Simulated scan of single mutants.
Amino acid sequence: MRMRPTLSWTPAADLPPGTTDVTPVADVLSAGGVLVVSGAGLSTESGIPDYRSEGGSLSRHTPMTYQDFTGSAQARRRYWARSHLGWRTFGRARPNAGHRAVAAFQRRGLLAGVITQNVDGLHQVAGSDGVVELHGSLHRVVCLSCGAFSPRRELAVRLEETNPVFEPVAAGINPDGDADLTDEQVRGFRTVPCTICGGVLKPDVVFFGEAVPPRRGEHCRELVREATSLLVLGSSLTVMSGLRLVRQAAQAGKPVLIVNRDPTRGDQHALTRVALPLGTALTAVADRLNVPVDGERAPRA
Rank of each mutant, 00 (worst) to 15 (best):
T280I: 09
L58R: 15
P151M: 08
A252I: 03
A179M: 04
A81S: 06
P151G: 05
L271P: 01
R107D: 13
D183K: 01
D14V: 00
D287W: 01
A13F: 06
R88K: 12
R300H: 10
L245N: 13
A286I: 00
A171P: 04
G234Q: 02
E184T: 09
V37I: 12
L155K: 06
T65E: 11
L7D: 13
V200W: 13
T280P: 06
P203E: 10
V291H: 00
P277F: 04
L7I: 13
I115H: 03
T19D: 07
V165T: 15
Q248T: 08
V285C: 00
Q117H: 02
L257Q: 03
A227I: 06
V25M: 09
L138A: 10
A40F: 05
D129E: 10
P17G: 05
E167L: 09
T10F: 11
R273I: 09
S235M: 03
G253A: 10
A40T: 00
G18S: 09
V169F: 00
G295Q: 04
V34F: 02
S30I: 00
G39A: 03
W87P: 05
I173R: 13
T182W: 14
A75M: 13
D267I: 07
G41D: 10
G32R: 04
M3S: 13
E218M: 12
G199L: 01
V36N: 01
N174F: 04
D68Y: 00
D14R: 03
L111Q: 02
Q251V: 12
R107P: 07
H123V: 07
T272M: 01
L282I: 08
L237Q: 08
A270R: 03
T19I: 04
T6N: 14
L111M: 05
R190S: 14
G253P: 15
D27W: 00
A31W: 03
A40S: 14
T280A: 12
R100S: 12
D50F: 00
T191L: 05
R297E: 12
Q67G: 14
S72F: 08
S30M: 05
H139M: 10
G33C: 10
T264R: 02
H99M: 06
D21A: 00
R221Q: 12
A301T: 10
S229K: 02
E226R: 15
P214F: 06
R265C: 12
Q185W: 02
R221V: 04
R225N: 11
R94N: 07
E184A: 15
D176M: 02
S137M: 08
S229G: 13
D14K: 04
H219W: 11
A252V: 07
K254H: 09
S128L: 03
H99G: 10
S236E: 03
S150A: 12
P11Q: 06
A40W: 01
V142L: 07
G279L: 01
T272A: 15
N260K: 03
G198H: 05
S128M: 06
A270G: 07
R78W: 04
R190A: 11
G188D: 15
R60W: 09
G113S: 08
V157R: 15
M3W: 12
H219A: 11
P164I: 04
A284P: 06
E218D: 11
A126M: 11
